[in-house]
Design a protein around this nucleic acid. Structure first.
Length: 177
DNA sequence: CCCTGATTCGC
DNA sequence: GCGAATCAGG
């Protein structure tokens, strides 16, 4: 994939909006989060909502003299946080509404996962995307429990989502008889 | 483990 | 310029 103007613009938008690199990567498609981060740095967009970032010495240090650390001339001390007006777009932590439980499982031996109040900003490929609440209201969020790799829901919500039909046969013994 | 961003450097 | 590999941290 190439960084077309459109993709760069979308990258900028999403980054400023506060999405993580991995989420932006999946949104764009065809790139990894590393690519996104690399691009973000090249665009000098890095320090988003960090007003006073302490210069934590995070310079990569060679553990045992690897072949990668060969050019000390690369060390660029110039590190300026050129963000100033992003506060308006900074995601504000909304007052968390009381976490709601889902409708009581009839007889599931599984513990109902308490909602982690995952938002669209915290969902990843491995977090349960079971919607909780009304998407049109403020308290809407997602389950957020860990789900299996590639599985959109946690164990509990997978049972609901993929409820087998044959389970319903049990009801018919009365209705049909 | 899962995740986050930061950095380096071969390509 | 690009991004995988790597690092450092939560």
């Amino acid at each position: 994939m190439t960084w077309t103007d459109e993709r760069v613009e979308l990258l900028k938008k999403l980054w400023i909006d506060g999405l993580s690199a991995s989420q932006i990567a999946s949104e764009l498609g065809g790139v990894t989060r590393n690519a996104v981060i690399g691009k973000v740095h090249r665009l000098s967009l890095s320090g988003r909502a960090k007003p006073a970032a302490a210069p934590t010495a995070r310079a990569r240090k060679p553990a045992v003299a690897t072949s990668r650390t060969a050019s000390p001339a690369r060390g660029a001390p110039a590190q300026r946080p050129l963000v100033a007006g992003n506060n308006a777009l900074k995601p504000v932590a909304e007052t968390a509404p009381e976490p709601r439980r889902l409708s009581r499982p009839e007889s599931a031996p599984v513990v109902v996962p308490i909602s982690l109040h995952a938002t669209i900003l915290t969902l990843t490929e491995q977090t349960c995307k079971w919607p909780i609440g009304d998407p049109s209201t403020e308290g809407f969020h997602f389950c957020g429990q860990r789900s299996g790799s590639g599985i959109p829901y946690c164990e509990y919500h997978s049972r609901i989502a993929y409820q087998p039909v044959h389970d319903r046969r049990r009801d018919r013994k009365v209705a049909a008889g």
